[in-house]
């Protein structure tokens, strides 16, 4: 692995070879969460393409004091995917999906191609109580505000906040 400082330097200098490197090392992580959010592989491919373009174009606004490069890239991917699910085109395409496609999709969703290293992570995550995981899913992957998530999950806002913090602390211990 190249040192992160070198990657950032080359990215900010608009050295296009670094995009290829980033793709090789992070596309699986970014693509995975995009698919998880948009629930459609062809849409996910478009979002991944726009994500890398944004990483390339916005390299100069990346601030290492606010977080690691890969977490910044992950946030771009996550936000673009969430924005896509809120777009008109997306809603229409989801409505037009046949029942059969939906069934196939749900199967895909539960049987992702899991790499060897992600098996451990998945097991760790599965040890988390479902009520905690639901909160992370709603807030982190579906872009719900805390108030909206509390309403959907039918729990008081204060409880949701406490659970969210506990969930992240439990995960931190496991990761």
């Amino acid at each position: 692995m190249l040192p992160e400082t070198e990657i950032i330097e080359r990215l900010k200098a608009q050295d296009s070879s670094i995009i290829s490197y980033l793709y090789d090392h992070y596309s699986h992580a970014l693509y995975g969460i995009i698919v998880h959010i948009v629930q459609d592989e062809s849409i996910a491919e478009e979002v991944l393409q726009e994500t890398f373009l944004k990483i390339w174009q916005n390299a100069n606004v990346y601030d290492a004091q606010k977080g690691r490069l890969y977490t910044w890239m992950l946030n771009i991917a996550r936000n673009m995917a969430i924005d896509t699910t809120r777009g008109k085109g997306y809603k229409k395409s989801q409505k037009n999906q046949s029942f059969e496609n939906n069934v196939n999709y749900l199967e895909t969703k539960t049987t992702h191609h899991i790499s060897v290293e992600s098996i451990g992570i998945k097991e760790l995550v599965n040890q988390l109580d479902i009520s905690y995981r639901m909160i992370i899913e709603k807030v982190y992957f579906e872009g719900y505000t805390l108030a909206d998530a509390a309403e959907v999950l039918e729990i008081p806002l204060g409880t949701l906040k406490t659970r969210l913090r506990t969930a992240l602390q439990l995960l931190r211990k496991k990761v």
Partner: peptide, 19 residues
């Protein structure tokens, strides 16, 4: 903050998928 970011990154890796 960095540790929370790292945790969520690790959490999201459960969904990783090769394009």
């Amino acid at each position: 903050v960095f540790e929370i970011q790292e945790t969520l990154y690790q959490y999201s890796l459960q969904y990783q998928k090769q394009p």
